[in-house]
Write a protein that binds this DNA or RNA. Sequence first.
RNA 1: GCCGGUGUAGCUCAGUGGUAGAGCACACGACUCAUAAUCGUGCUGUCUGGAGUUCAACUCUCCACACCGGCACCA
Length: 636
Amino acid sequence: MSTFYITTPIYYTNAEPHAGHAYTTIAADVLARYHRLKGDDVFFLTGVDEHGENIQKIADQKNISPQAYCDQIASTFTTLWERLNVSYDIFLRTTSELHKSGVRKLLNTLYKTGDIYKGKYEGYYCRPCERFFTEKEQGTNRICPIHNLPLEWVEEDNYFFALSKYQDPLIKHIHENPEFIQPESRRNEMLNVLESGLEDVSISRSSVSWGIPLPFDTEHISYVWIEALSNYVTALDYAQDGEKFRKFWPADVHLMAKDIARFHALIWPAMLMAVKLPVPKKVVAHGFLTKDGEALSKTLGIFIDMDTDIGTYGLDAFRYYLLREFSFGNDGDYRPSRLDARYNADLANDLGNLLNRTLGLVSKNFGGIPEPTTAGEFDAEIQQMAREMVEKVDALMDQLVFDMALETIWEFVRRINRYIQQTQVWALAKSEETKGRMGTILYNSMEALRVVAVLISPFMPNTANRIRQQLGLDESFNDQGLDTVAEWGGLPSGLVLGKPEPIFPRKDTKKSKRTSKGRPAQAEQPADDNLISFDQFQELDLRVAEVIAAEKVPNADRLLKLQVDLGSEKRQVVAGIAAHYAPEDLIGKQIILVANLQPAKIRGIESQGMLLAAEGGKELAVATFERRMPSGAQVR
RNA sequence: GCCGGUGUAGCUCAGUGGUAGAGCACACGACUCAUAAUCGUGCUGUCUGGAGUUCAACUCUCCACACCGGCACCA
């Protein structure tokens, strides 16, 4: 029996779960269930990452202990997974002793290899990110691009992992194992990163207390990312070299969204190489979800309303939609209107109706499942199609091509609808002579549905179960694996049917009742202690400035070089707004200039200030005045 | 600017060196077992634009444009 170890990332407890987490986790669940169906010994890991300065800070704000805070968030995750029918084998918390002891062992082992060294770290640091910025990253004015906050100069002793040593081994490994990083675009990207050189990474923090102390120097706390990655082995009881670890490592698939592919495809394998452990077989990064074409954003209130959609269409339809509609490696646009279309066309019309019409004919004309006594036209074709479908689905699932796997199953479902049409089964009830043929056709249809139920069970466990019940099969059929569909005829005759009942009642789409935009719950207000004092505000010197000249900065996509008039003086400002404004559009406009900002060199051009602009999603607008003001006037 | 990718019917996408396909949507027809469902037929396409190679390109090469990633740079 082969083993199959699949993981999702352990999610950071800085916020409650959202649809992105659900997408990754449902995909992992489908794979886990599929492999169980194949008879593999499966271990499915998910969990939460609970340490780090951020968590501490949030807990402090809420005036509770970090542990109590994490307990709360962790339970929102487990509740959601239960709701989404996620069949994980372990929900790992990084505050668990299982994890902590594993981390200590891994770090100790790593330390002994000599690939960890102590260095004084001086650098620019972003607290919310909990990381240092390399010189390349920090830019000229030292603002964190993610949080838009000034980077702080921090000096501390840190331990480093000699990641750069593994640059060549990683390149070699990626070349020798083409399937290691998927999809291919991501693989190319990683190779690109490797070619341009890796820097050693810091693996500890001394200013943080909520975390796991380094076993060889307890003054230092393990950096959350390093610690979190370790979870993939600690969850298997790496600490005790446990049975699970020996059985399941290396992982078959690490699944994640594309933003953290780098950690998984480079740093984590390098760590493993350092301690002489096998690296995971596949690192698979999927795309992001957008909503009606817009990036999800908490602050803008763009989110996927899982509750509403699951409430309307059911959990299985939601799971089906996520995996059927999107090509796994690419970004996918979540559109409730498409969910509705999929629901009606695929689930209600094709599958649900097929089950219903078949059962209706059987119960009207036969006591139970009829005997297939009279073979005829199309039978062989359908049986062969079923066999081929099983093989094809298996190959596609192996490649994680979920959308095509489902499409393949639906081709078969449509074929059975056509079979019923072609043979005109219902007309065969009229004479006793044709009754045998009728029973056979219905038997075949039901057997087809049984096969379909098994194949869709990883995607839609509840639906598979309901089909099983309506076919009159007992629960033991739930445990039957893929091999029971390879051969036609696994459905016993004579069974009394369950009660036929539409499994996917058609939704009335005549009038789209959906009010197009579910108004999001108001985005949470930031905590009070983000307030600044009036004095702090006063420190900003904001001025009216008129743009008197503007031109593109060569070799820079986003930059415009502006000459502005402040009344008493002229300034040169470089602004990253080229994607939104043509130079000539700005000339003559009055803008707001931060006049007392430290000058910075941007692309070698001095920028003496910064203009204010609003950004929302992909839109950007420069702040101007509703009527003309003298240049240089103070803004407050 | 650099690296990679994408650009095919209204929508989502597949595809091969010999001038195009699927599903959905739409129209018409058939059927009536069924959840106004199913089945059949049809439908629109300058296969992003231009040049080149070839007997022949949507499919190969080059250039351009647009969009999407990543990097640079910066918001």
